Computed example of a mutant assay.
Amino acid sequence: MSEQEIKQLLDKLSQVSVEIAKVIVGQQNVIEELLISILAGGHCLLEGVPGLAKTLMVSSLGKSLALDFKRVQFTPDLMPSDIIGTEILETDHDSGERFFKFQQGPVFTHILLADEINRTPPKTQAALLEAMQERCVSYAGTSYELPKPFFVLATQNPVEQAGTYPLPEAQLDRFLMFIRVSYPNEQQEIEILQRTTGNIDSEISAILSAEELIALQGLVRSVTVSAPLLSYAARLVRATRPKATQLANNASDANTQSEFDCESVREHVRWGAGPRAGQALILCAKARALMSGRYAMNLADLQFVAPAVLRHRILVNFQAEAVNISPDNIIEQLLQQVPVPTSPLQST
C-alpha cells in the first residue's frame, strides 16, 4: 500500500469521528476509545447509567461505517437461539421431502450491538462467547463462519442497578476494552438540550467500507514498538497480580521475586490481568498511534489505553469494596509507581 493510500485511509478514519460528532455531544475520549477498539479488531463494552446515549453512540458508529449493523435488546427472557439462530423445518416443494435448515440469528453481521447485555441471565450471555473468540457459531455439529470484520459492541448498566446480571470473568476478558461513559459537563448538557428539543436533524454518512477497515487493521499490526515498551507493558500487566498468586503459580521462576510489588495490589486484588491483557495493551496502543498518524507507538499511547484495557481484568476483594477502592484506583497507582523505561521511548 502506497503512502498516499495510507493517508487517504487515515483521513477517512478522522472523518468517522466528525460524523459521530454530528449527533453525539462531547465524549471525545469515549469515541476515540471506540475507534481504537475497532482498529485493533476487538470487542468493546461500554458502561454508564441510563440516558447517556451509549446506544446512540454505537448506532452512530455503525452508520458511519459501511458495514452491516444489527441490534439486540438483551432482556431477562432472551434465549441463546434469539442471538445465534436456530434450525427450522422446511419442505422441498419438488420432492415433498422435509429437512432442517439453519436460520441465522442477528449475530451474523459485521457490527452487533448487544444493548444492555447484563440485563439477561448468564446462559444467554454465554451464547456470544464462541462468536467473540472464534468468529464463528457452532450449531447441531456444524460450524458457521461470521462475516469479516466482526465486532460486538455491548452496553451495560452499572451492576448496582436493579435487574442486572454481572458478566462472567471469562466473557469480560473477551472484550478488548471496557469503556466508562460519564455525565456531560454543563456546557455540553446545554448543547444536548438545544439539539434534541429543536428541529435539528443530522444525517450520518457512511465513510469506511469493510475492505478499508480490514486494511487499517493490517496497518495497526505494522506499527512498530520498541523493546523497552514491550517490557513496560509486560511489567504493568504483571504488576496487577498479587505477588502471592504469582509465587504460587510460578514457583520455579526466580525472576518473580524481584518483580514490582504494589501494596494496594497485595491488599486489595484477588486476581490480576492475564496475558491477553498485554496483547490488548500493545494492539490498542498501536491503534492509537496510527490514529495520530504515527507508525511507532510511544509511552503516552500505552498509558492512555491502560485503564480501558485493564479495569475489567482486575478483580478486587471484599476489603477493597468495603473501603471503596476500584480497579481504576489500582490502575492509577500502578501507572504512577511501575518504573518507566527511559530509552528508547519517545517515538514521533
Rank of each mutant, 00 (worst) to 15 (best):
A300M: 08
A254K: 09
S37Y: 09
S292G: 12
I38H: 03
Q346I: 11
A254S: 11
P122A: 04
T240F: 12
S60Q: 06
K63I: 09
E321K: 13
H268V: 04
S231R: 14
T224Q: 15
I84L: 05
V18R: 09
K54I: 06
A53L: 03
S252M: 12
H268M: 12
V152L: 04
H43D: 04
E263D: 14
Q187L: 10
V23I: 12
I24R: 02
S95R: 06
R235A: 14
I214Y: 08
D201E: 15
S205L: 04
L236Y: 08
S205M: 02
L146Y: 08
A21S: 15
I331H: 09
K12D: 09
L46N: 01
L315T: 13
S2R: 15
L315S: 14
A53D: 03
P228D: 11
K286L: 13
K123F: 00
I6R: 15
G62R: 00
I204A: 06
P242L: 10
L281D: 02
D173C: 05
G293L: 10
V58R: 03
I111E: 05
R235I: 00
V137D: 01
A287Q: 07
T109S: 09
R195I: 12
A285N: 12
M1W: 11
Q246V: 06
E5L: 14
Q125Y: 02
N29D: 15
Q8F: 03
E3R: 13
L310T: 06
G26Q: 07
A140L: 05
P80R: 01
L153R: 00
L65G: 04
E169D: 15
A170F: 07
E33A: 09
G141F: 12
I192S: 09
I36D: 00
E19I: 05
T55M: 06
E169V: 12
V338N: 08
A277Y: 08
P307E: 08
K286H: 14
R311Q: 14
F69A: 08
K12G: 09
D328T: 11
S209Y: 01
S14P: 01
F108I: 11
Q4I: 14
Q257M: 09
L34D: 00
E212F: 07
G41A: 14
R270P: 00
G274E: 07
L299P: 08
G42W: 04
L310H: 07
E169C: 10
A296K: 13
E5V: 12
P341D: 12
A126D: 04
G26W: 06
S347H: 09
S143A: 15
L45E: 03
L334R: 10
S222N: 12
N324W: 08
S95G: 13
T155R: 02
L52Q: 02
G141T: 14
L61P: 02
F150R: 06
S143W: 08
D328A: 11
T245R: 15
C44R: 05
T124Y: 01
E267V: 12
E212S: 09
N317C: 10
I314L: 07
L302V: 09
N199L: 13
S292N: 13
E47C: 04
I314H: 05
E191H: 13
T164C: 05
D92S: 14
I24E: 01
